[in-house]
Design a protein around this nucleic acid. Structure first.
Lengths: 118, 118
DNA sequence: CAGCATCCATTATGATACTG
DNA sequence: CAGTATCATAATGGATGCTG
């Protein structure tokens, strides 16, 4: 998951590096759909994620400049996450991929994909 | 790396599942650029990949219906890999992401990305 | 509420040697 | 040439308990 920031051969490589991770896609999706989400809201949205993983992903994405984190010095504490411009742009760039994925989900429901050789 | 084939929340999720893996993006890139590549050619193109990883990725992508594998019963043996329609479509869908990534690489070259807060 | 620390299980990745 | 087998390490994912 950790962005390796290494020398990339192509843009795809660089982009995939930033979105790889079990929940990053969903986080982007959630933030894109709702604009702003609190920690606990994300936790509920990403059904099944552990606190550690959520925090880890959020920190990573923050460091990658995809999301911004705002802490409200209240009690009880409140932290809100939202997409940065780069994150929003990434989401845009992710749309065609999302369509491809939806098509694939449909195909999977109808047929077994791995059976192309028959 | 192994596609989990699990229930996906959204298309992004499903698509990312299929392309996640250290070398899959590069394999797609290579096959898209050259049309057809042999095992050894891919190995050279993906500089630094081990035989095991390459084979593993290729098998996974074949199973996911992204690439097709053709064995020529000659001696010495020859195996060629090429994109399937689904793989080509995925590559198409990946283009915007690639552009985003290229932009990101440019920004990284100029500035430190993680320094957005300053 | 938001999160960190710790321990543990599972996966992903990798180097090396060997085979048809 | 195109792999497979084996061994080892690193990264990731997750459960639990604790803190301000």
């Amino acid at each position: 998951m950790a962005s390796r920031k290494g020398p990339y051969i192509c843009g795809i490589d660089a982009a995939l590096d930033v979105v790889s991770g079990k929940w990053k896609g969903l986080v982007l999706w959630e933030l894109n759909a709702h604009g702003t989400r609190r920690y606990a809201e994300l936790r509920r949205a990403l059904h099944g994620v552990s606190e550690k993983m959520l925090t880890q992903h959020l920190r990573q994405m923050e460091q990658d400049g995809l999301i911004s984190r705002t802490v409200y010095p209240e009690v009880p504490p409140r932290v809100e996450y939202t997409l940065t411009e780069a994150g929003a742009a990434l989401n845009e760039a992710l749309q065609p991929l999302g369509e491809w994925g939806r098509g694939r989900i449909r195909r999977e429901a109808l047929d077994v994909v791995g059976d192309a050789a028959s």
